[in-house]
Design a binder for these strands. Sequence first.
DNA 1: ACCGGGATGTTCT
DNA 2: GAACATCCCGGTG
Length: 191
Amino acid sequence: MRLEWDFYARDPREVASDLLNKVLVSGECRGRIVEAEAYAGADDPGSHGFRGMTPRTEVMFGPPGRLYVYFTYGMHWCANVVCGAEGECAAVLLRALTPLVGIDEMRERRPKARQNRDLCSGPAKLTAALGIDGTANGTDLVTADSGIELLDDGTPPPAEPGRSVRIGLSSGTDLPWRWYVPGCPDLSRRG
DNA sequence: ACCGGGATGTTCT
DNA sequence: GAACATCCCGGTG
């Protein structure tokens, strides 16, 4: 069943750990979330929202349950789930998926992937594999009006998830706000 | 296996 | 002008 508004309207650290083993749907493709990171606002120097709202980060401050998609390094898209209360800055970056459905379509979008575990093993890989780009910024995951949604298929999050500092930051590097499924072969890094 | 560097352009100072 | 929540390729061991 589809995740509802109250799932998202919480602290991003809770949402990040609870998103493990949920299913991301985009069009005909599906993947299981195995790695996610929490981001906050004024108290989180690693967050895009650290210095307040800008045109780019407006969605992060808006209602929970929407998708915040940003462009980085001149060529990559990354997708976040907006969390917390409306007016707060809070989101969860989706960092890795286990491909479940639509693998042929994913391989067409990511022809350089050598194996299935390379298709979605990074935040910009999974958006490319599932066809998510800036046109999806701000779309509502609860109504799924753009074909993107999150499902609970009955698989619970791991009883003891892996946890580490966040990856790729130059600020906020001390906060252990990355969660992952231990030993999963589809992570962005071994864990 | 590990490491270094290039691609590529938006965003904010 | 610098930084960037990244990825890929080619070098070396």
